[in-house]
Nucleic acid binder design. Structure first.
Lengths: 130, 130, 130, 130
DNA sequence: GTGGTCTAGACCACG
DNA sequence: GTGGTCTAGACCACG
């Protein structure tokens, strides 16, 4: 598994890890059942403290994206485990609204926003992996 | 001017103020030249410290959304001069990508995303105010 | 006498008045002995409070740029009254240094700075009025 | 990093910090990648409240002079990305005009102004650091 | 340890 | 009255 951290990114490191893994799952680079590095391994690869990786894995487990099998390692979860709380959905919609507002202030049109989104979906493989 | 703070919102208070005012400008509820409450007034209305409102207003002034007239108060700025740093645009596009990823995990389709965005744009008045 | 105030100018109003009058003297638009409006007159013309004009006139008098003849009005002073404290000169040199630093951050060259200054001096009539 | 505050200076403390750091960058005393003191450290050195240092650092970050790495400290930024809003440039040109007017009232000539500027540029290392 | 946010309150310049 | 600066100190997230 490949993962890049950007120290200038305003997102905290653990969030970059979460987002990065979710992105790779969507892209199909990580498939259900695939093993991912242990906390210590990934921390070593990224040269950050294991605490940070641990926080990311905990959150990913809470979201049923990954599963830990004691003593065996950590794996990408099966999709049927997917469940999302309604409050989380509302949070995402709120983030979407904020992006739309910011987008208008850039001066770009709604059409350009849709094109941007199409580009993103393409880069994610149109989301057929989930 | 009406403004609501949500203590459960993960965004800091000053950011909620910024976003709220930008939203009302897009909606046309606040027009160029309109006076907005003084720092102390708004702080009183929201029962927060004036410093927090001040921070929001200073950031809005930096973004050329509002203007301060010494001793007279604070006003919505004329629309001219709209310019956004490229790094800021990249930041918004990155937030958009994150939303798209999160969106796919909700199980909703891209079509539904576009519908959601259409709804948001409608609620903002299709952006003819800027 | 003509004078323009800019409410968006970061300088306080009284300072804009001071600078404006000094500029007109340099340009020769105001000559030694010329009468200038009374505090109340100028306040009326600029639609600001007389207090603000008063503050400007007091400072101009302190700098021997203008003189008040009780009951007769206010006049541009003779040049021989000119005197400047050393500390004031140091202050100006410090402001000059700050401008030079800011100038470098604009990306413009020293040559361009000199050209800009030549333009300013030209607009002031090369300063032969003092 | 050495930094001096002057309580008699009319500039606010946070602005003296900003100007001081920008000057040292121009002089090459601070190089891209160099770490600068943490907010608390510098506040201790200057015996002022950390809030004031924080305000200066945030403004410097906005100007892309410094960068913050979460939990690791604050660093001088790479030079790229240099861009300045036109309104900011106008502000600097206006400050320059004000200095020119004040300069003429000192009695010094334009030639002497150029010499003074040459001296300032020399002390800044002719700006080859940016 | 680091920086970011917020409070409560003082003092100041400007108008 | 207005906004701007600064203090002193708390609490938090991140690493």
């Amino acid at each position: 598994m490949m993962l890049r951290l950007n120290m200038k990114d305003p997102r905290p490191l653990y969030e970059q890890i979460i987002d990065g893994i979710k992105e790779q799952v969507l892209k199909g680079l990580l498939q259900p059942g695939d093993q991912i590095p242990s906390i210590r391994q990934l921390a070593g690869m990224l040269t950050i403290t294991p605490n940070t990786v641990s926080k990311a894995y905990q959150e990913l487990e809470r979201q049923h994206i990954i599963e830990t099998a004691r003593g065996k390692g950590t794996f990408i979860a099966q999709i049927e485990n997917l469940y999302m709380e309604q409050s989380k959905v509302m949070e995402i919609k709120q983030a979407l609204k904020k992006v739309c507002i910011d987008w208008q202030y850039t001066g770009y049109s709604k059409k350009q926003l849709f094109e941007e989104i199409n580009g993103i979906y393409e880069s994610l493989g149109e989301g057929d992996k989930r």
